[in-house]
Amino acid sequence: MSDPNAGIDALADLLKQGDRITAERLLPLVYEDLRQLARGRIARLAPGKTMRATELVHEAWMRIVAGGDPGWEGRTHFFGAAANAMRNILVDQARRRGALKRDNKRKESLPTDVPELEHGLPYADILTVHEALQELEREHARPAQVVLLRFFGGLQMADIAPMLAISLPTAERDWRFARAWLQDRLGAPSSSDE
């Protein structure tokens, strides 16, 4: 995919097909687009600055809208896919770094094809979180979806609720539950402790 716009165009076209598209078709495209975008953007960033993952998602969306707004359906599809794609990118990075750490010799053979995106914690934690989220998805799919859109997609609750076709209070309740569930699963401290 040498033409950076080819992916976008394909994606935009796909999104405009509305409910006929499937996540299986969309995800690889979004994934690739986000990686492309990250490579291009990061090269232009001032030294020492990094780009945040959600910023990237929103930037990708802006490029799609610039080619013609794919409408509400398209928007829902896109952010659903983008949040997942972003999560995959971060998990890939974490795995790669884990591998690098374990095996210095393989450094050469593992090119960093996407510059690091900014986030909070060590990579090992990302994998833990990823696993926890997978578990939450199995047990409580919709709350997991809210977490995904909110953090990996960078969306506000007011945007998330209609995307999942639920009311805002329901979305808030999902969020509250998911938050408690994840913290419990991750063994986060429940009270101030040092």
């Binding site: 945040r52 993952a53 959600t54 910023e55 972003m86 999560r87 971060l90 998990v91 974490a94 995106l117 900014e118 986030h119 909070g120 914690l121 060590p122 934690d125 990302i126 979180v129 990823h130 977490v147 953090f151 990996f152 960078g154 509250r176 539950f177 938050r179 408690a180 569930w181 994840l182 913290q183 419990d184 991750l186 986060a188 401290p189 429940s190 009270s191």
Partner: peptide, 22 residues
């Protein structure tokens, strides 16, 4: 879960869900 709920704040979650974008 309720105990976690009482403790939950956005940053606390951020802390525990480290990969999530700020």
């Amino acid at each position: 879960l309720l105990k976690q709920d009482a403790a939950a704040t956005v940053p606390a979650l951020q802390h525990s869900l480290g990969s999530m974008p700020p």
